[in-house]
């Protein structure tokens, strides 16, 4: 029993820790895709955020400023994507591919120049993203340990759950959200009603980059303490997968990310104790996703105008 509670606590901790960066990326992906712009550049934007976050935290000593700057770095690449796809009507998949090369390329090059290594210098404990409620619980008791595992989470984790709520509210309860969804479904209709589709989409893709950048910063500021070229390997794509899984809704993406995080958490626990091969355990999140898709989710309705450049007649 004690063991079980302990394991559960660790799994929940890992679930939250691993879901957090994905969730930022997924919320970012939601903004872009729902407004009608395919953004497979999330991966590159996360990488940019991961690097910038740690570097700024390292130099300023303030994790929150670092975190924010990680977001801004993502937003910068988001803006690049927006200029190409929204302003110039570029093919969205190709532009996203370009972002996925440019983002890592530029930041790793910067790392080389700044640190003479592809890795950044590890953050000290005070530069890392702080854990909220650390020390609040009495870890000498079983219950306390459990509570500590679950609730003494990184600030960024608390923030992302608030962010999910905010994004949900924005999407479904505000004027901006209604228009944003309309832009992804029928941009011409929006234009005839005097909504500036170009501006809406531009903003959404930038927001998308910002959130992805925060996600990247989470990885290097919570899960590890430094940026390496392999810090972001595929999380961006997993985030996109979570969004498709969640049928392009923030609440759905939340489920997708938690499922992924949970499987990763399972991996941590099982990997430590049982004799099962680590590589096979690592496969679990991906296999489970496919199975869940086949059994429960099925088709995901893509926003009608998703992927189609909107070009205004002159």
């Amino acid at each position: 029993m004690m063991n079980f509670v302990n394991s559960l606590g660790i799994i929940l901790f890992a679930t939250l820790a691993y879901s957090t960066p994905l969730l930022y990326g997924a919320l970012g992906s939601c903004f872009s895709e729902v407004s009608g712009v395919v953004n497979i550049g999330i991966e590159g934007m996360m990488t940019a955020g991961a690097f910038t976050g740690t570097v700024v935290a390292y130099f300023t000593g303030n994790p929150w400023i670092g975190f924010l700057c990680g977001g801004l770095a993502g937003a910068f690449f988001g803006m690049l994507h927006a200029i190409a796809t929204v302003r110039l009507g570029a093919d969205q998949t190709i532009a996203g591919t370009a972002i996925n090369m440019l983002g890592p390329g530029i930041v790793i090059m910067l790392a080389k120049v700044m640190f003479n290594s592809t890795d950044t210098i590890p953050l000290s404990a005070s530069q890392k993203m702080p854990k909220l409620f650390a020390g609040t619980f009495d870890t000498s008791t079983l219950f306390g340990r459990f509570m500590d595992n679950v609730f003494a989470a990184y600030g960024s984790t608390y923030l992302v759950f608030i962010a999910v709520l905010i994004v949900w509210f924005v999407f479904y309860k505000t004027r901006f959200g209604l228009r944003l969804r309309a832009c992804g479904e029928h941009p011409q209709a929006c234009e005839t009603l005097g909504i500036n589709v170009i501006a809406m989409r531009f903003a959404c893709v930038c927001i998308s980059g910002f959130l992805a950048g925060l996600g990247g910063a989470c990885v290097t500021m919570t899960l590890s303490t430094q940026f390496k070229p392999i810090s972001i390997v595929g999380q961006g794509f997993i985030a996109i997968a979570a969004v498709i899984f969640g049928k392009f809704r923030p609440q759905g993406a939340l489920l997708g990310c938690l499922l992924f995080g949970f499987c990763s958490g399972l991996k941590v626990v099982l990997g430590g104790s049982s004799g099962v091969n680590m590589q096979l355990i690592s496969m679990i999140p991906y296999v489970v996703t496919v199975i869940v898709l086949v059994l429960f989710v099925g088709k995901s309705r893509v926003p009608a105008a998703n992927g189609k450049p909107y070009i205004k007649a002159k």
């Binding site: 309860k173 505000t174 004027r175 959200g177 209604l178 228009r179 309309a182 209709a189 929006c190 009603l193 005097g194 909504i195």
Partner: peptide, 12 residues
Amino acid sequence: VLGTEPTKGVRL
């Protein structure tokens, strides 16, 4: 109402 939505505060 799209484009001229009534709002209450920030809420639609």
